[in-house]
Design a protein around this nucleic acid. Structure first.
Lengths: 340, 340
DNA sequence: TTGAAGTGTCGAAGCGCTTGAACTGCCGGT
DNA sequence: ACCGGCAGTTCAAGCGCTTCGACACTTCAA
């Protein structure tokens, strides 16, 4: 193993000089810098992570806490995890994967041991027990999702309210007047999942504003449940021509059921999905959908923790940010003008 | 921050005694152990990861290298990542996520800096450039996948040959005589992807043995490509009644095309998929499928690195293991007796 | 009774790095 | 001629932990 001292000897300087060359924290002459850098390459030196962490009191690691199972579409979680990892590397950081089966202890352990300098929490609940733990330890963190009380923390999430509003606007623009909002299962609303509630209220507000009549129905996302939901919607409001779906599982069944009930999409009924692009593309017809920028979510979360870590290490008080990312409406084949 | 010394003082013993209580590496009296453990809890002591890594020359971290994009169905990757993380925790290890955009350097960096004690590589290619790098550094590693030359490494993978054979057997048992094997795109076979070749040769051998006639056709996994492939298969061999599909993208199209060509599944044609359970369940009819145990893949990989790490730290030469996991055939609704 | 072996604890020397303080020239200003 | 200041470098003291060797004491066989 090559150490700092080896490099110093090889370059004919002291260990601290090598350290300063590497960290850039003090001015070093051209000549010395060159010699040191050459030696580093020649010897294949890699600073020892443990020693560095111990001396500098910075591990250059952030922990990413991923949910074990969730309502979240799995490829999206993976995309976030990857964008977090790549963004972290830009800052010279690595990412430690923590699964949520450890619960609060995982976060505590990783922060208290100095294993991680900061934490990113995915799939945050409104009233998340990990949040007080983070606050108690003074751990720098960024949440992907929006809890009840975010003081002392930074958060980033999709702007679900805007997404809901976009759906309403799009259908209204196309002349639809009767809309059905097919949402998540009742349980999701009962536990006040933020994304579900915010989408719905954003949709509701805009729908009212645009004079739309609408029905919100929760749906478990199975074929049977979707069939039941759709039947009731059409019984209550036979003139419904617009559908907003926020439930990955219900999309496929809904399309099949509309078709088999003799309604052609988009001629007879328009469907807007709140789902990832990937999913929207894979149905036939391809779905008009409102989507949030997934990668951005990870990137922003990393910027937030990084900002907090450097602020804290400078003795400052990190500022709590709250970033809501604008969703994007992509018009595809599943929406069209309302039938007359 | 609470340190070892704080605990020692609080318990009225020396620092080394506390260390030995925690590591269990020397015998400690009941009484002392109790006092120390109490102090640990009372003070909320968490050993500092950096210091521990430095002194013990063990970071208690393994790196997991995930592919950025791949032929692998994403939720499966996530499932592996999670099972790796959980299995690692059982050994007191944490998992560092490395994306493959760093390429070989990522592996080198993480191992050379002592950040990770071992590495798990996912999505290994037959001739993977990261393998020589691992060997050169003497890094303990386990590969998920089977490279050309695995000497000095441990590997774990699904037994794709057995999976292929299972498909052949199942269809033969049901009386099918003409089979089409719908595989991955031509590119996958051209670069000799191990899983594709091994499945095919396992299938081929068993099909020959069972006296099946079969056609192997590569397919890009789009609707158009699947349509073309199927048309050609049916033109060449109109009597084909059994289909084996190893291509996530082709499954949906294939089912639709069979249906629209007037063939009912499973009455007129049987379909066996080589795909994750999750996928097999989501089609209608639900697919008879051959699946490998995903979680096991991660778990075994972890056991392998752990084994190697401890062997190496005892001065031994870690043994190279090669584990192939048995696939499982789950009969669902897409296969039935061959029509007469 | 004595020595050998075993048990439980401690002291101290690092592990490889960072960083504040101190040092050395050298320059320009007075 | 002298001093202050500055850029560039080095010294040395840790960071918090592990672990080797030593020590004190007990036990047990010869």
């Amino acid at each position: 193993m090559v150490t700092l001292a080896d490099v110093a000897r090889h370059a004919g300087v002291s260990a601290s000089t090598v350290s300063y060359v590497l960290s850039g924290k003090r001015s070093i002459s051209q000549e010395t810098r060159r010699r040191v850098e050459e030696s580093v390459v020649e010897l294949g030196y890699h600073p020892n992570a443990g020693a560095r962490a111990l001396a500098a009191r910075r591990s250059h690691i952030i922990a990413l806490v991923v949910p074990l199972r969730s309502d979240v579409y799995v490829p999206i979680m993976m995309e976030i995890a990857i964008s977090v990892t790549m963004a972290a590397r830009q800052h010279g950081y690595d990412v430690l994967l923590i699964t949520n089966d450890e619960g609060v202890d995982g976060v505590r352990r990783v922060a208290a041991s100095g294993l991680a300098d900061g934490v990113i929490l995915m799939d945050v609940e409104l009233d998340d027990e990990r949040i007080p733990a983070l606050r108690a330890q003074g751990t720098q963190a960024s949440l992907i999702g929006l809890p009840d009380n975010a003081s002392g923390l930074s958060c980033v999430d999709h702007d679900f309210a805007a997404a809901g509003a976009m759906c309403a606007d799009h259908l209204a623009d196309l002349g639809h007047r009767e809309i059905a909002f097919i949402g998540y299962g009742a349980g999701v609303y009962q536990r006040h999942a933020g994304y579900a509630e915010r989408t719905l209220s954003g949709f509701r507000a805009r729908a009212d504003q645009r004079g739309l009549r609408f029905l919100h129905r929760s749906c478990e996302g199975t074929f049977e449940s979707t069939a039941g939901t759709l039947a009731r919607v059409l019984a209550d409001r036979p003139d419904t021509t617009g559908f907003v779906v926020q439930n990955e599982g219900a999309i496929g069944p809904l399309l099949n059921l509309l078709r088999s009930s003799g309604r052609t999409v988009p001629e007879d009924a328009s469907v807007v999905a709140l789902c990832p692009e990937q999913l929207a593309e894979q149905y036939s017809p391809r779905l008009t959908a409102v989507t949030g920028p997934t990668k951005e979510l990870g990137r922003v979360a990393v910027e937030q923790v990084m900002g907090r870590i450097t602020a804290a290490s400078r003795g400052g008080r990190p500022t709590d940010e709250l970033v809501l990312l604008d969703p994007v409406l992509t018009v595809r084949e599943s929406t069209g003008p309302a039938p007359r």
